[in-house]
């Protein structure tokens, strides 16, 4: 019973967070809807234990809670994969940006110094 209340409260909290992050423009509407739907589903499955258990048996899994766990592990694995890909994309984008800036800087320096004597030509440079 305590767990039920706890999950219910946490679920409501998570739904409100998703809505607020959407309002802050940190989540797109699709992403916000997805999170809200997911948490609503979790709340409902806790509230209506018998119905989820019969659904679980239909899938050949013993209890509703097991079905939930099974789904959660699958979903989390997928989510971490998505995050990994995204982080990788960001890392590569950042490197490309740093590279472009670095090359642009040295090209500009070269153009600027084109008419000046090179440092290596100056006495004592080596």
């Amino acid at each position: 019973m305590i767990l039920k209340v706890f999950i219910l409260l946490f679920g409501i909290f998570a739904v409100s967070r998703s809505y607020l992050r959407y309002k802050d423009r940190l989540l797109t509407m699709t992403a916000a809807l997805f999170w809200i739907l997911l948490w609503t589903l979790i709340i409902l499955s806790v509230m209506f234990k018998e119905e989820t258990s019969s659904l679980a048996q239909y899938f050949g899994i013993g209890r509703g809670a097991d079905l939930l766990l099974f789904g959660a592990v699958l979903f989390l694995s997928y989510l971490s994969f998505r995050l990994y890909v995204r982080v990788e994309e960001l890392r590569q984008e950042l490197t490309r940006l740093i590279r472009a800036l670095a090359i642009r800087e040295v090209e500009e320096d070269r153009k600027k110094n084109n008419n000046r004597p090179s440092k290596r030509d100056l006495p004592g440079a080596a």
Partner: peptide
Amino acid sequence: SFGAITIRHAINRGQGAALATGIEYALN
């Protein structure tokens, strides 16, 4: 100061990234 072409990454990106930058610049 030695007259070598010096390209500077604003932040550390790793040896692979540095090599790729140098190669890209050389290919220019």
